[in-house]
Write a protein that binds this DNA or RNA. Structure first.
Lengths: 237, 237
DNA sequence: GATGGTCGACGAACGGTGTTCGTTACGAAC
DNA sequence: GTTCGTAACGAACACCGTTCGTCGACCATC
């Protein structure tokens, strides 16, 4: 379009101010909050920083590593109880509260929880969190081995719950009329309610008798049940 | 290479014998067992059937739907207890056995469990399975509402557990020297053991005191713990 | 037996993805 | 003032899911 002299072709801009890992992670989080996890592509994150995808690989080995760093950055925002020893209040309540906080924080960044399912998180913020969880379990008198594996179990549950929520509400932004798109595309898998309403009481007697209970209840109550089940299942009898 | 007349260019072959949804799903399962979930691409599945990717869209609306069909086909192979009423043996044991069977079956198809995390499964085989699980919970005297949500919880756990296992053992095949590749690529995230060995006892006292327990134990024992925690957490006290 | 119409297998292409490579500008050290 | 390592960058590679229009093969009808 412009004259060839005007061409900025290879290497025009004077190499931007340096990025840094932190800047890359923050840009990723911005894209995540705005458009959801699937939109966190190397290209979009790079565009957020007004550069090309290749530039990100100086600070991040892979997309997956970027996601791990983002996940840890999110977990780092969860307020943790003070270290030395938790006040002696009911350990179950304290643990349930902590897990609830984590889940809510993760849900504010839709989909990021999936990353924790891929590999047991080992970032610094996760280690802090695990230590508190383990401490609470031990304080509750849970067997050492059971507490250790319980820690794992809780992390797994957190990942699963936050992943599921993210799929239910596909992303918030994604530009204008995202809701429209989410509804009309998707090839319309029959909803769970429809499936439950249509099932044969002969073949699925229990499901048919419980349709109301299966679809009932606010998400918060379901979340609370899951956490309660985990804790009371782990607690010493 | 050959003479232009030999060219099969556009539309040479006489349109193959028809495929059918079943054939597509089976081909997908073959690729899955051989190379893992990520390798189940429309192109690879099509190649398995000696055709092009476009041909699959006659039987399957999307890749995601193909995966759902594959998941249901796998679940259909789990033997279920007879319908009318389960023998009165301990419902906990029966339920634990059922869940264990499901997990093992899913683990034989690495990664497919992830699909169930994406959306609550509503395929026929899953409905059968849910009905049995719900029946066992109700037989155990679990409250109706709690049993219904517990069903959900168990499905979530199954998905999470099978997803995690799949990532740990990235695929079996993937061609020659898959193990070599898995080790040298991956950009070598520090292993959990290394991380645990390196942590600061001041900052993470409980983790540091439990490294042995955290890494200990066969996978089967961890799986059993998770199932036991869920069941005893759901059971009426 | 010829004919018309429907179904689906197919080639090609589009717009995206993660990642790699070699080049090159910059800032600091000498 | 020159050198030199670091890192931003353009371009490209090999894939991906999905769509479009074409056209061969079969089947119901005349």
């Amino acid at each position: 379009m412009d004259s060839p002299a005007r061409r900025k072709s290879t290497r025009t801009r004077p190499s931007k101010p340096p990025l840094g890992e932190r800047a890359v992670v923050d840009a990723g989080l911005r894209v995540l909050r705005r458009e959801g996890l699937d939109a966190v592509t190397m290209r979009k994150v790079a565009a957020e920083l007004d550069t090309g995808p290749a530039s990100l690989y100086v600070y991040v080995a892979q997309r997956e590593e970027l996601l791990r760093l983002m996940l840890d950055a999110v977990i780092a925002t969860v307020p943790l109880p003070a270290l030395p020893a938790p006040p002696p209040g009911d350990w179950r309540e304290r643990l349930a509260g902590l897990i609830t906080d984590v889940v809510h924080t993760l849900n504010a960044h839709p989909g990021i929880g999936r990353v924790s399912l891929g590999s047991i998180p080992t970032g610094p913020a996760w280690l802090d969190l695990f230590d508190r969880i383990l401490g609470l379990l031990l304080a509750g008198g849970v067997d050492r081995q059971r507490a250790a594996w319980g820690c794992d179990l809780i992390a797994l549950h957190i990942g699963a719950v936050t992943y599921e929520v993210a799929v239910a509400q596909p992303a918030h932004g994604d530009g204008p009329d995202a809701l429209q798109g989410a509804l009309e595309s998707r090839h319309a898998q029959a909803s769970i309610e429809d499936r439950l309403a249509a099932l044969d009481p002969e073949r699925h007697p229990h499901l048919a008798a419980s349709t109301a209970e299966l679809t009932a209840g606010p998400a918060a109550a379901r979340l609370a049940l899951g956490i309660e089940v985990l804790i009371s299942g782990l607690a010493p009898s």
